[in-house]
Design a protein around this nucleic acid. Structure first.
Lengths: 170, 170
DNA sequence: AAAGAATAATTGACACTTGAAGTAGTTGGC
DNA sequence: GCCAACTACTTCAAGTGTCAATTATTCTTT
C-alpha cells in the first residue's frame, strides 16, 4: 500500500504529508458518491413521473429522444452508442416500441445488414407530449439553483467528461 | 408555457429576448444530460472493472459497502433506504451474497419480522480487497481534475442535493 | 469468384430493478 | 383478549442491462 502519493497534486501547504494524502484520496471518492447520489435521485424522480403520467419508462423515453433529433433515422448501432448501452439491449427496447407502433425499423437499401429506426407519426406526437413535461420536471428540480451555479456546474462536468474519456479508454 | 417542441435539442444561438428565456430553460436540461452522461461513464467503468477483476457486480459491492460501515448489521429496510432501491431488490442481492457466504441474515430477537444483515469474516476480507482497488479506480478517473475544482464540484453538488430533496418530496 | 475477416443485428443466459401482491409478526384501540 | 391496521420482508412478472455466441451481410484478398 503506497503511502507516498505526494507527487499526485498540489495542495494547500499547511497540512502535513499524511493528512494530505488521506484527504486527497477521499476527496475523489466523496465527490463520486455525491454525484451518484444526486443522479440517482433525479433519475428515480423522472422514472416515477414517466411511469405515472405516461405509463412508459426512461430507456424508452431515451431512445425516442435520440430518434427525435435524427429525423433521418438511426442505425441500431448508433442508438447503442448514443445511449451508452449494449446492442442487445437496444434490440429489446426497439422491439417494445415497435410493437406499440411508436417506432419503425426500415431496411437500408444500400446495406441489408442495417436497420434505420425512425419515430412514427404517432411516436413523434407522444414524444413531444412527454418531452415538454419532462423539461418542466427537470427545470423544477434545478430551480433552487442560481443560473450562475448551474453554469459553473455544467462547465465543471464538461471538464470532468473530457478527463474521463482519456482515463477510461485503454 | 412554450409550445416549443424541440425541448431536448441543443439549439443554435439566435440571440434575442425570446431565445434567451428559451436558453435559460434549456440550461437545466443540458446540465442534467451532462451530469447523467458523466455518471454513466464512471459507473460503466467501475462495473466493468468489478466484473473483470472480482467477478462481482456494482449492486453487490454497494450492499457490502453499506454493511462494512455498520458492523452491528443493518435491517433489510435500512439497506433498501441507503442504497436507494426497493425492498424486493435488496432481498435478491442479499440472497446471492448469502449463498456465497459473504453475508449472513441474523434474526432480531426483539422483532421476529426483521433480519440484521452482516458481513461474514470472509465477506469483510473480500470487501476490503475490492474497496482499496475501487478507490484507486476512482482516484484515477478524477486525477485530471485539480483539487480546487473537485472541491467546487463537491460543493455545488451538495447544494443541488439539498434543493432536490425539497423539490421531489411532496 | 471463393475463402476469410469484419460488421450489423439478434438471441439466450443471467443479473438487476421496479411495483404490486402476498406472508408473517407487531401494535394499538376496543 | 381480539381484531384491524401497520410494518418487515418475500415473491412474482415484466422491463432493463451485460456478455458471449450466432446469423446474415459486406468487404478484402487472392
Amino acid at each position: 500500500m503506497p503511502k507516498d502519493k505526494s507527487s499526485l497534486k498540489l495542495v494547500e501547504p499547511h497540512v502535513d504529508a499524511e493528512t494530505r494524502v488521506h484527504d486527497d484520496h477521499h476527496l475523489s471518492v466523496r465527490l463520486w458518491l455525491r454525484m451518484l447520489s444526486c443522479t440517482n435521485r433525479i433519475e428515480n424522480f423522472v422514472r416515477q413521473n414517466l411511469q405515472a403520467n405516461f405509463d412508459t419508462t426512461l430507456p424508452r423515453f431515451d431512445l425516442m429522444a435520440q430518434l427525435e433529433r435524427a429525423p433521418q433515422g438511426l442505425k441500431m448501432s448508433e442508438l447503442s452508442q448514443r445511449m451508452m448501452v449494449t446492442g442487445g439491449n437496444v434490440t429489446g427496447i426497439t422491439d417494445g416500441l415497435e410493437k406499440e407502433g411508436l417506432v419503425i425499423r426500415e431496411v437500408d437499401p444500400t446495406d441489408r445488414r442495417v436497420f434505420r429506426v425512425k419515430l412514427t407519426v404517432e411516436g413523434q406526437k407522444q414524444f413531444r407530449r412527454m418531452a415538454s413535461e419532462h423539461e418542466q420536471w427537470i427545470i423544477g428540480l434545478f430551480e433552487g439553483m442560481s443560473v450562475k451555479h448551474k453554469n459553473q456546474l455544467t462547465e465543471l462536468l464538461g471538464d470532468l467528461k473530457q478527463h474521463i474519456s482519456q482515463s477510461s479508454e485503454e
